[in-house]
Simulated assay, not measured.
Amino acid sequence: MSKKEDIKEEEISNEQETAQVEENQEVETESVKDEPTTEELVQVEKDKFLRLFAEFENYKKRTTRERIELFKTAGQELMTSLLPVVDDFERALTHIEEDKEAEELRKGVLLIYNKFYNTLEQKGLSRIETKTGDTFDAEIHEAITQIPAPSEDLKGKIIDCVEKGYKLGDKVIRYPKVVIGQ
């Protein structure tokens, strides 16, 4: 073999070695890119922790809100069942007022009614005020019938309230039943 051929073979083998070294370096850099660094791992875990913490905080707030709402409306069934008793007291008071001889009875019934109603108010019950001439609102009132309006200004307005409405906190537990002018 000649020297030129030996040099060429050496150059070719050197080029092959260089190409192989470059390939190995590329593979090493790719493998380094595939494996996350410790900072990246810490950041990922920190992100997971923050998301989990935020989710837990939202859970606590939601359950607290639900518990408060439950306490506010826990007596709703009891209050709803006591509303006819309040209505009966009011009817009794209107009948007793007509009888002039039953003044002492009226005072006693009124005393019991006030005590009973004040106790219900302390537990969150409130009356929905409805007067003759108020504008009818389907979200607040329940129309049970329509009658011809006695005057033009009462058309589409409340003529009579048949049954009073009540709220427990902010929630309506009984809508006022009204008669509307047509």
Rank of each mutant, 00 (worst) to 15 (best):
L105I: 10
P176M: 05
I12E: 10
L110Y: 07
I128Q: 05
E9D: 08
D87Q: 12
K131V: 06
V109I: 15
S126H: 07
K177H: 04
R127F: 03
R127Q: 02
Y175F: 12
D99I: 15
E104Q: 01
M79N: 00
I96V: 15
E103W: 11
L154Y: 07
N14T: 08
T73V: 02
Q146H: 07
Y59T: 12
L50G: 08
T132F: 07
K164L: 03
E26N: 12
I12Y: 07
T63V: 11
A143K: 13
Y175R: 11
C161D: 02
Q25W: 13
I158M: 15
E97Y: 10
Y175G: 01
K155I: 10
D88R: 12
K72R: 12
L154T: 04
L105W: 09
Y175P: 01
E30H: 14
N114I: 06
I158N: 09
T132N: 13
K3G: 02
V109H: 12
L70K: 06
V109T: 10
E152L: 05
Q20F: 11
T119A: 10
F56Y: 14
E5Q: 06
T38C: 04
E55Q: 10
E35D: 10
Q16Y: 12
F71I: 12
T130E: 05
N118T: 14
K72I: 04
N24Y: 14
K167N: 02
T145I: 00
N114T: 15
E90D: 11
A143I: 05
F49C: 00
E35S: 13
E152I: 08
V178M: 02
E11G: 03
V42K: 06
I159Q: 04
T63L: 11
E39Q: 10
K3T: 01
H95M: 15
F136Q: 05
T18G: 12
T18L: 15
K131L: 10
K157R: 14
D87E: 15
G133M: 15
S81R: 05
R62D: 11
K131W: 11
S2R: 07
K164P: 00
S13L: 11
C161Q: 09
E30C: 06
E28P: 00
G124E: 01
Q76Y: 00
E90P: 08
G124L: 02
L154Q: 03
